[in-house]
């Protein structure tokens, strides 16, 4: 459950104020799949960052899972991100010198639990994505498709209730994009809330997408 109320975000670009988002209000229900459509620079990524608590809005409120993430101290918003939100980035953003398993464990490191438990969790997520057999490989030796699966496994490792995807298919060929979409669909059916920011037309006619919201110059076009 994500609720945005009149969210504005300004950046300082030199001496001028640039409005990345203007009074965005939005409500996404649990288990819903929403696609944010818009060209690059339209404010989609800013919106995702705000929802994840990576930045704070200039005004307005954002609440995630009943908690007002925009007002939370940083350590708590990080915890919320760790426990409830999974991130899939453009270009995957894996940490290149770690193995696949270590990349999947990375989000859990701050919890300071025994290694055994964390590896167990990571293995489950990796099996779910069909990449468990490459666990010991360094991710920069993996193919694009395998890297993508590691990235999804990392997003799933803590059983998040929300998945945020930022241009997930931007650097993929069509086969891989289809594969990714299939995994997203599986997630949707398991009850996870999905929020996908993209301008890839592949997403616009998918049967499991509940809503498509267009963003242009920081404003929602309904």
């Amino acid at each position: 459950m994500i609720v945005l109320h009149e969210v504005c975000k300004q950046f300082m670009q030199g001496d001028e104020e640039a409005h990345a988002l203007k009074k965005v209000s939005l409500e996404i229900k649990k288990g819903e799949c929403v696609v944010l459509k818009g060209s690059s620079g339209s404010g989609k990524s800013t919106l995702l960052s705000l929802i994840a608590g990576l930045m704070q809005p200039s005004s307005g409120t954002i609440s995630v899972e009943g908690k007002e993430i925009s007002k939370l101290p940083e350590s708590f918003s990080a915890q919320l991100r760790r426990e409830k939100i999974g991130f899939i980035f453009q270009k995957f953003h894996l940490i290149p010198y770690l193995s696949a398993l270590e990349n999947v464990i990375a989000p859990l490191i701050p919890e300071n639990l025994p290694v055994r438990i964390l590896e167990e969790k990571a293995k489950i997520a990796m099996e779910q994505c069909g990449i468990a057999h490459k666990a010991k490989m360094r991710v920069n030796r993996l193919s694009g498709g395998e890297q993508q699966r590691v990235a999804i496994a990392r997003a799933l490792v803590n059983n998040p209730s929300i998945i945020l995807a930022d241009e997930p298919t931007a650097n993929l060929d069509e086969t891989l994009s289809r594969e990714l979409i299939a995994s997203l669909e599986a997630l949707k059916h398991s009850g996870v809330t999905l929020l996908i920011a993209t301008h890839d037309p592949l997403f616009f006619e998918l049967p499991f997408v509940d809503r498509i919201i267009e963003i242009k110059n920081g404003e929602m076009i309904l």
């Binding site: 990576l54 350590s75 990080a78 915890q79 991100r81 426990e83 980035f89 989000p107 490191i109 701050p110």
Partner: peptide, 12 residues
């Protein structure tokens, strides 16, 4: 940036 996005805090 990646670490923060996947749930690390400044403190971590």
């Amino acid at each position: 940036g990646i670490l923060k996005a996947i749930g690390w805090s400044s403190d971590d």
